[in-house]
Amino acid sequence: MNVVSMVVNRLVWFVPTVLGLLAVVFVLARIVPTDPAVLAAGENATAEQVQEARERLALDRPLPEQFVEYLRQVVQGDLGTSFYTQQPIVDDLTERLPATLELTILGVLAAGLIGVPLGVISGLNRNSWLDHLLRLVSVLFIGVAPFWIAMQLQLLFSMQLGWLPLSGRIDDFAPEAMTGFLTIDALVAGDLQNFLSALRHIVLPTLTLALPGAAVIVRFTRTSVVEAVNSPSVAYQTAMGLPRRVIVWKYILRLALNSTVTQLGLVFGISLTGAVVIEAVFEWPGLGTYAVRSILHSDYNAVMGVTLCVGVLFALSNLLVDLLQMAIDPRGAT
């Protein structure tokens, strides 16, 4: 199979994936204990209004027809209205998405910046005390619940030391939205005070997100560095008498870090779902906080909207990772 057909194959798989996700959300919306027509018609609706809503939402037709109708609505960007915010769910989601993306992207960057160097150090000094320590710490961070770390960080840095804000995204009003990433928006506006405020707010959530991600990257990078160190090409270079420094930088790292891009992409997916959970702890105004609030208010449509949105983003990031992997190393893909 050549590269082009592999890429096409991946792209084609994306369609049933999203369709499958839509089908799952559709089925879930049909098994909720409350009648969606009653929900749509509102609290004080008369029987006629409920009936009218049922017909408008096509709930009186057979399921396959309903599914087609549902798909048509989703394609038109109609995910229904949230009972809690009384806004179209698509608007709610687009309003909150940048906050979640800002957090996720920073989290992955931080995870990479912490994880890759530590993984390389660990792998190059295999079985030293430093290696054992790093392995222990990374296993610990894989095992610890992010929402629990989040609370411990808040307890220490915000409540006891008072160094960093407890929750939220910024102290004052947000700068004029361009990217929706407050740190970048404030920088573009030249507003240093807001930039620092946004930065101080994002430190703890980023750290919470980055620590487990970094732990995964340390373990992965260590394994590939150890593999590279033991590879025949490195043995050959050593036998040729090349200085250790040259071997490490030119051969070992190049061999080992080939697949780090893929690993970062996978961590992006994990972090995206991680963000959904920890946002609630920091009252970070993104998709996660919205999801949790919707759960508390039994706002079914909104929960399904978040599921759909995060699911599509996750599938997209997986797709990108696969394509990147093919670009970097066309041998591996099938």
Partner: peptide
């Protein structure tokens, strides 16, 4: 195989949230 792949393409915890939310 396709069914399994589709379910794996969606984050597990998000799906689980949607299901538990629907079932109570």
């Amino acid at each position: 195989g396709g069914g399994a792949e589709i379910l794996l393409a969606v984050p597990q915890i998000i799906l689980a949230i949607a299901i538990t939310q629907s079932l109570g």
